[in-house]
């Protein structure tokens, strides 16, 4: 089954639930099977991930519409990179569990660009195509997501994010 690992990983990160991810992957592969005619050749993975991503959004609209409205806390945007603790302790204290939680806590449109960039290693162009946004938006989303992760890792580990409630 081609690219199943990548498809499942994306679905799992977007739905944040193993069972839902399986459902979404099944649905996505069915769609891929139906719409194989729209595949224009080349690398199959971005095409398939686009279908997985769109299936996820459809699924969330039907089941968890509230999550799609989840936005970044605007206060976060004032956070300047220069105010980050410059100490290299970031490396030392990295707790994988906390990193996972911080990534999971990101709003879905930031989570998807992070997963596609950091876990799938896709280019800005490919991500822009999959998420159907301009490359500039991909870059700004990546920048904001990374700031948020850095902030999360340096913050009090017990801090709860508002949308995790």
């Amino acid at each position: 089954m081609p690219h199943l690992v990548a498809a499942y990983n994306l679905a799992r990160w977007l739905t944040r639930n193993a069972h839902d991810a399986e459902d979404v992957v099944q649905e996505a592969y069915l769609r891929a099977f139906k719409f194989f005619g729209t595949f224009r050749g080349g690398d199959c993975r971005p095409w398939l991930l686009t279908i997985v991503r769109n299936t996820c959004y459809t699924w969330m609209q039907q089941n968890r519409a509230a999550e799609l409205k989840d936005n970044f806390d605007e206060a976060m945007e004032s956070l300047e990179s220069t105010t980050l603790n410059p100490e290299a302790r970031l490396l030392a204290i990295v707790d994988h569990q906390r990193l996972r939680q911080a990534l999971e806590a990101l709003p879905v449109e930031f989570r998807e660009v992070m997963v596609l960039r950091e876990l799938e290693g896709l280019s800005y162009k490919e991500i822009a195509d999959i998420a159907d946004v301009p490359i500039g938006t991909v870059m700004s989303r990546l920048a904001r997501a990374r700031k948020r992760l850095q902030q999360g890792l340096l913050d009090n580990p017990h801090k709860e994010y508002p949308h995790e409630v």
């Binding site: 199943l4 690992v5 990160w13 193993a18 980050l84 290299a88 990295v94 990193l99 990374r146």
Partner: peptide, 20 residues
Amino acid sequence: KNQQALRQAIHSAALYFSPP
């Protein structure tokens, strides 16, 4: 350096989910 540290952390955190 901080940026690099974050990337390394992400890559070393085994964030990739494997399908059942």
